[in-house]
Amino acid sequence: MAPRAKLFIPLVLFAVLALFLLRGLELDPKDLPSALIDQPLPQFELPSLGTQSLVSRDQVIGEVALFNIWATWCVSCRVEHPYLHQLAERGVPIYGINYKDDDSDALRWLEELGNPYRLNIVDAEGELGLDLGVYGAPETYLVDAGGVIRYRHVGVVGERVWQNILQPLYQELLAESAP
C-alpha cells in the first residue's frame, strides 16, 4: 500500500466508529423487543375485577383487541387513561390486566376515572405479567382474532402511538380476520 494511503486508515476507522455511534444515538436501549410476538396469548385463569367469577384466556380472545397492563401505582397509566376512553368510544375492544395491584384501589380508580375496559383481569401476583414478559406498566399488547400476540407497546399509548403504530396494525388485523 502506498504510504500516503496508509495515512487515511485512522480516518476511515474513525468514520466507521462514528457511524456506529450515530446509529446508537437513535436506538433506545429500553425498547426491548418482546419475546412473545407471534406467540399465542398465554393461558390463564384469574379473577375478574369487581366480580366473584374467574376469567380465562378463551373468554377474551376471538376478536382483535388490546390488552392493557395497568395499575394504580403507575403514574403513566393515569396519563394514558383518558386516551383509552377515546379508543373504547371508537369501538376498539380493550381488556385491562390489573397488574400487581390492590383490588379496592383499582375499583376506586375505575369509579373516579371511568372504565374503558371490557373487563379487568386481576393479576395481583404478576403471574400473567411474567408469562407475558411484562417488565413495567403501562404496556399494551395487540392480540389478533386467533389469540396471537402481534405487537407490544411499552409506555403510554397516546394519539401519536395509536395513529402511527397501533392503528395501521389494528386495521390490518381486522381485515385479516374478516371473511
Binding site: 426491548l32 423487543p33 418482546s34 419475546a35 411474567l130 407475558l132 414478559g133 417488565y135
Partner: peptide
C-alpha cells in the same frame, strides 16, 4: 426465562 423476556 428466555421464552418470556428474550435472549436479552
Amino acid at each position: 426465562m428466555v421464552a418470556r423476556y428474550g435472549e436479552f
